[in-house]
């Protein structure tokens, strides 16, 4: 009376004793009871294979975390003994000799970046003397102009903040 649908029955209520205090998720003690949809409640026991998967995943996360930790005091480098270092240096030297002896390669510096055809650059006509003189005179003028820049002091450099 006076309220829409006040006379209708609430057909959505699935549990007879359900009220506003009925938990949506059944308490842990009730997990063995099947719910209304015919589904079995949360199953906390997993097969052995799954358990192992979880364990290995956990180990993996721990290992990954250890790798990600920034540790500048890592003693990895100090683990190598002086003798081992010498041995390794000798081995490197021998192997380097072996690797390089089979080559007839001569190391040469690479061309500067952006130069794909050096013959074009080298065969181009040299810059004319007038251009060189122009560049020299302009740069000298610019240098003298830069030296003559003076600051004309007009206002106080330090002013009171908020002052009129």
């Amino acid at each position: 009376m006076g309220c829409c649908f006040s006379s209708d029955e609430d057909k959505d209520v699935g549990v007879q004793s359900a009220n506003e205090r009925t938990p949506l998720i059944p308490p842990p003690g009730d997990i063995s009871q099947p719910s209304h949809g015919g589904r079995v409640g949360p199953n906390y026991t997993t097969p052995n294979g799954k358990k192992d998967d979880g364990q290995s995943e956990f180990t993996r996360i721990i290992r990954q975390t250890a790798i990600n930790v920034i540790d500048v005091t890592s003693p990895e480098s100090q683990n190598i003994e002086q003798g081992e270092m010498q041995d390794r240096a000798t081995q490197y030297s021998n192997r380097l000799n072996m690797a390089l002896s089979g080559k007839s390669r001569v190391y040469r510096p690479n061309l500067p970046l952006g130069v794909t055809s050096p013959q074009m650059t080298l065969s181009a006509a040299p810059v004319s003397m007038s251009d060189v003189q122009l560049i020299t005179s302009v740069s000298e003028k610019l240098t003298s102009a830069a030296k003559e820049i003076k600051i004309q002091h007009k206002e106080n450099l330090v002013v009171n903040f908020g002052g009129s």
């Binding site: 390794r88 192997r95 390669r105 190391y107």
Partner: peptide
């Protein structure tokens, strides 16, 4: 950049170990 060829050759030496 100039050392790139050298470093590539030496990398092979370390790779053998």
């Amino acid at each position: 950049n100039e050392l790139e060829d050298v470093l590539k050759d030496i990398s092979k030496v370390v790779g053998m170990m």
